[in-house]
Design a protein around this nucleic acid. Sequence first.
DNA 1: CGCTCAAATGCAACCGGTTGCAAAAAGGCG
DNA 2: CGCCTTTTTGCAACCGGTTGCATTTGAGCG
Lengths: 331, 331
Amino acid sequence: MPVTLKDVAEKAGVSRSAVSRTFTEGASVSLKTRRKVEKAAQELGYHPNALASSLTTGRTKLIGLISNNFHNPLFLEVFDLFTRSLQDRGLRPLLVNLTDETNPANSVRLLRQYSVDGVIVASSTLSPEFAKAFRDARVPVVHSFGRFASAPSVHVVGIDNVECGRMAARTLLSRGYRRIAFLGGPKEATSTIDRRLGFFEVLNATDGIETSESFATAYSFDAGRAEMLQLLEANPAEAYFCGDDVLSVGALSAIQSKGLCVPDNIGIIGLNDMEMARWENINLTTIRQPIRQIIDSSIELVVAMLDDPDRYPEARLFSCEVIERGTLRPR
Amino acid sequence: MPVTLKDVAEKAGVSRSAVSRTFTEGASVSLKTRRKVEKAAQELGYHPNALASSLTTGRTKLIGLISNNFHNPLFLEVFDLFTRSLQDRGLRPLLVNLTDETNPANSVRLLRQYSVDGVIVASSTLSPEFAKAFRDARVPVVHSFGRFASAPSVHVVGIDNVECGRMAARTLLSRGYRRIAFLGGPKEATSTIDRRLGFFEVLNATDGIETSESFATAYSFDAGRAEMLQLLEANPAEAYFCGDDVLSVGALSAIQSKGLCVPDNIGIIGLNDMEMARWENINLTTIRQPIRQIIDSSIELVVAMLDDPDRYPEARLFSCEVIERGTLRPR
DNA sequence: CGCTCAAATGCAACCGGTTGCAAAAAGGCG
DNA sequence: CGCCTTTTTGCAACCGGTTGCATTTGAGCG
């Protein structure tokens, strides 16, 4: 049923190689044959089979896009940007949802079976083992939104979470808050660990600050809300740095449901600047991650690895910026 | 570098066919050879190349998942559910972002080049031409969240938007609203058209109701907000049925920014029940689409078409349900 | 017009698998 | 143990392309 190279070759009265060559960039074909072939292809509605050609060329133009962040609104933008940028470069994202998967070996097997040219691990919560497993299988890989390491074993593109923690602390201090708390995401998530680190580094270096901390069970609305409800039971802090925006909204909602007011009674600063953060009913002061840069840079890296698989691993970190909205009291 | 069938065959001391057969369901292999092959494969770390085998079997297990709704929070859930369900059935989603694409032919070409087994068009705003183009190319296709047609030319799974319109109208009437308006999405979107239809069908059949309508330029926060700001300039209605939840939040935000109160001054009912609708700072009364059912059903259909490509097209519609929250005054 | 050299072409092998078919091996039975 | 049937096996062709290499074609030139 589908029309193949051979059909075109016969119709055009040339060899199969000639047809193949007219469809491959930079191959040697005379204008005359090219014309003939193009005409025949046109009439037959022929289009080369990318998968068949990948067998010999070793390139599928398939990029595995793997993530487990399907509940973080930020990731809708992330997927949008990734898919568009990949498409613009003629690459196709094979999407893998790792929500229920804990074993990197399975993902590697799966994506190797489909001969992906490269893999982008897009997740802030996934263990670095996933990216490493791909590297070990010699599949070009970049960990986007991954954890910074001074001697990275795979390419990592993201933000400096420690610095974000510091930034949050400085912001809260500059607003005159003195009883300050960290409301983190899952305790074991690397992003939580790093943000906490920077946050307390600054706070502990400042005199007269009373600090406390607690952790939500997930980066989710419900977890944030539940944790904040707990905190409100007994002498809450004046201001909280929340693990991320969704958590912040959960906390916000808990605070409001208790009849308290933000920022008058309690201040909140989030992290991510997801799309909804600017919605006026939320109006969250937060720290923006430059996701567009992170994504472009990730793709750039993975593309570079296609040509140079042994490229020396690097960490690319982008700086974040505080977005002032309405959940902190003014300076 | 990668280990192939041949390597395993040599190591196990059998023919390539034998190896192939041990890895294909239901092929005739003796237990003895199977053991040998499995051992060799294990030691070599062999896994069959799905793309190579697709060449002869004609099956890639690739499913094109195409959408242009990368700004609707509902679609994060949609992608989550689609990818997981597909994976559970051993299928792989090839994600295509159609945001900047208007020509169906390009999508068809692209996905044919990758020999996808089937395609799911997941979009409420994409023209039916996209799905039809795939059907014409004899690629199994299902349009999820698509428009109902009494004589569908392709499989359509979604909701009855006309009925949703009626449901919204009845809900507003039951709350005693009399000056009622429709705040639609883009005028030309089929979902807008249908929802409007059902909405006014009920309202016009009721005496003493004053109606009006207007349209946002997109299903987005900003468009909803801008349109509502306009409306607030001159004698707004008592209650609005908004095109979808994001639009509703935009409208909500405009209302609040004018110092008005919901639901005391103005009532709002949305459609979709996106995850954020239940966030207490939003707390939107809305109509829930059963997306899980829609997605399961879509996948079921596309899988069925793999075996029976000429399956007679059907429309599957699921009923929606009003979710009572805080943006309409009580009964 | 004959010669040289570069460009264009086709052949055939190959990419990593699958599969129809005939031959070989195994099993069942008298 | 021989004969017949069933199962297992390997051969070889094929899926839809690509590519190295030798050959043919044609352009350029004296």
